[in-house]
C-alpha cells in the first residue's frame, strides 16, 4: 500500500534545511546557556543563575534534538520514491509549513 504527498520537492527540501538550521541554532544556544558565565558574581546570585540555566538548558537541548530529528525524518521520507503509507505521508506533511497542511495525500 503506497501513498503520495502532493507538495513540491523544493518545499520538502527547504523544510529539511530549516529544521536542520533550527537544530544547530538551538544546539549552540543550550551549550552557551549551560556554561553561562558566573565569574565575579556572589554565591546567592550564582546559585540563582545555576537554578535558572539547568532546566532551560535541558529544555533547549531537547528542542534542539527534536528539530534535528525532524530534519532527519524528512531526509528519510525524501529517500523514498513514494511515501510508504498514508500515515507516513501525513507525518511528513506535519513537518512542513502550515501552508501545506491541506496538501493532498493520494493513493494509500
Amino acid at each position: 500500500m503506497t501513498a503520495r504527498l502532493d507538495v513540491p520537492f523544493a518545499v520538502v527540501q527547504q523544510a529539511r534545511q530549516r529544521w536542520d538550521v533550527a537544530g544547530d541554532e538551538l544546539d549552540g544556544a543550550w551549550r552557551r546557556l549551560a556554561t553561562t558565565s558566573t565569574a565575579e558574581l556572589d554565591t546567592d546570585v550564582v546559585a540563582a543563575v545555576e537554578g535558572f540555566r539547568e532546566p532551560w538548558a535541558d529544555e533547549l537541548k531537547a528542542a534542539a534534538e527534536q528539530a534535528s530529528g525532524y530534519a532527519a525524518e524528512i531526509v528519510y521520507f525524501r529517500g523514498l520514491v513514494v511515501v510508504a503509507d498514508q500515515e507516513q505521508a501525513e507525518r511528513l506533511r506535519s513537518l512542513l509549513p502550515w501552508a501545506q497542511h491541506d496538501a493532498a495525500v493520494t493513493g494509500g
Binding site: 533550527a22 541554532e25 538551538l26 549552540g28 544556544a29 543550550w30 552557551r32 546557556l33 556554561t35 553561562t36 558565565s37 558566573t38 565569574a39 565575579e40 558574581l41 556572589d42 554565591t43 546570585v45 543563575v49 533547549l60 528542542a63 528539530a67
Partner: peptide, 25 residues
C-alpha cells in the same frame, strides 16, 4: 563588591546570546 559590573555584564551577554538564538528559531 563580590558581584561586579563586569560579572553582571558577562552574564547578561550570555543570556542575550541565548535569547537571540531562541527567538530566531
Amino acid at each position: 563588591m563580590v558581584s561586579t559590573p563586569v560579572g553582571a555584564q558577562r552574564l547578561g551577554t550570555d543570556l542575550r546570546a541565548v535569547a537571540v538564538a531562541v527567538k530566531n528559531v
